[in-house]
Design a protein around this nucleic acid. Sequence first.
DNA 1: GTGGTCTAGACCACA
DNA 2: GTGGTCTAGACCACT
Lengths: 124, 124, 124, 124
Amino acid sequence: MFEIDLRSREPIYEQLVEKIKELIINNVLKPDEQLPAVRVLASELTINPNTIQKAYRELEHRGYIYSIPGKGNFVKPAGLENNAARLIDLSKELKRTVSEMRYLGMTDQEIFALIQTSLSQDRR
Amino acid sequence: MFEIDLRSREPIYEQLVEKIKELIINNVLKPDEQLPAVRVLASELTINPNTIQKAYRELEHRGYIYSIPGKGNFVKPAGLENNAARLIDLSKELKRTVSEMRYLGMTDQEIFALIQTSLSQDRR
Amino acid sequence: MFEIDLRSREPIYEQLVEKIKELIINNVLKPDEQLPAVRVLASELTINPNTIQKAYRELEHRGYIYSIPGKGNFVKPAGLENNAARLIDLSKELKRTVSEMRYLGMTDQEIFALIQTSLSQDRR
Amino acid sequence: MFEIDLRSREPIYEQLVEKIKELIINNVLKPDEQLPAVRVLASELTINPNTIQKAYRELEHRGYIYSIPGKGNFVKPAGLENNAARLIDLSKELKRTVSEMRYLGMTDQEIFALIQTSLSQDRR
DNA sequence: GTGGTCTAGACCACA
DNA sequence: GTGGTCTAGACCACT
């Protein structure tokens, strides 16, 4: 479920954040669903509980989950938050990605087709 | 030319790598064009020469420039090398970006329009 | 009447304390009025009775209610007790709040206007 | 400089956050000024470095400081950020404070006077 | 049993 | 020397 590469340069907690964020975005983890308990996930991944905690805390800061002390961590329903700033970043990222794809020889048609499949895929 | 944000959390050498990569991708730096000498750039940016060196070495490693000892560093012509692997990565990244945009509330039309402007922009 | 946010990071009993305190301060709950019985409130809010008990005990400790064993919990008339200490705390808190508002860019006029509406509101 | 109450119920890192935030708001710590190094502050306060780290990270999340790995932590110049949400919270807090002051017997005149001195104080 | 806090101590990357 | 990451292990508060 949560695959972690211990040898990666990317910090473990950051990998976890990205993985879980992806599961939430793709609706694999449903709104208000409970995430694995810190200690449980820690023993499953043979990772220190503090590291899991850090990942969960970071996800909370970024608005993807909420934590109830003594209860657990839960998926936050897609918010009505300050998405504007994040969307601007994503737009820039998308432009950069597209630019590099063209640089590496992909035609506009191919890029277009790729995005169309992305959009038709996992429609919710 | 090379704007560096000394306040950024991102390492200086990494910022340099990204900036130069971008200039190469967008054809601002032409193939076989010589990059600024390490010491020159270092004094211009008031940055440690070691940091510039590290950025150039990294760019060479990633296949964007080549180094001729005693001569300098030069833009590598867009190769036909191992682009396949990189393109797969970029495709995944693009899908991830698009997924998150939708999650944050962007409609498919808006995303599509965004990419169209990206593609029509800076056509070479 | 007593709205509790089960998703909040703030402990349930603490939320209850604040809510009830607010109702007392704003004279919604009148002096010597009886508070809902522990079990009644517990079943209404579908919350553990122990949690309600803890909130009532805390309110008693803070001087907002008094308890008559076998009878129930009642609103304590605004005492002339150790208000001095509490008022000093509140003054500090108010100053802190005002300072931060200014730091965040609010003008003195705006702050003043805000307080004037606060004072004219819910005059008793 | 940074006084911490080890016996307080409030977490150490949270106390630190509040203290430093206050110093920044009151312009004691100037924009872009460097904060004490993590290890230095840790040994001064005889607190674990991880705890200081946590406080600094939290301050960064809340937009009061920025961190440059390998360099240090610095005061963030008063931003042009999303202050709206925070200001709404502060307004509510201010109203709550004023309500309680009146409940405890303070007259409107007294409250008004208090705020006037707050505003005239530490004008920058 | 849950999340949250804290300590002690180690190792790494950046400049 | 700086911040950042991670582990091991302890203790506390809430329900």
